[in-house]
């Protein structure tokens, strides 16, 4: 088990809570609403294709995501959502096997 640690800024203080997104790439139909209407520009369309042949989004700039869930409000296919995750929780959430 390896524990991920919260990134810190140059003062070594923990960063304020940040956003995370969850993407169900197989549900995505590639409409691009999430990428276009994300207020911080955190998302980009990936180069990859899902089984149906659509490009799906990826969190290209994780540090920009505020967790506002606007992507989750726009996505007509219920394929993406965002949430605010305190770094303490994010750190435990990202515990890897």
């Amino acid at each position: 088990m390896e524990k991920a640690t919260a990134p810190s800024n140059h003062n070594n203080k923990p960063k304020k809570p940040r956003g995370q997104v969850s993407i169900s790439s197989e549900r995505c139909k590639g409409c691009g609403f999430c990428v276009a209407f994300c207020p911080t520009g955190a998302l980009e369309m990936s180069e990859g294709y899902n089984a149906k042949g659509y490009h799906y989004p990826e969190l290209a700039n994780p540090e920009k995501c505020s967790g506002c869930d606007l992507c989750g409000m726009y996505c007509p296919d219920f394929a993406i959502c965002g949430a605010r995750v305190p770094w303490s929780e994010a750190a435990s959430a990202v515990t890897k096997e």
Binding site: E26, P76, F78, A90
Partner: peptide, 26 residues
């Protein structure tokens, strides 16, 4: 991995077993 912990608000109210739905892209 952190992303997997997040569930959409919509997901709580839709029949996930019927997804993906029939609506067209966009």
């Amino acid at each position: 991995d952190a992303c997997e912990q997040i569930t959409s608000k919509t997901e709580e109210f839709v029949r996930s077993d019927r997804m993906p739905h029939i609506w067209c892209p966009g």
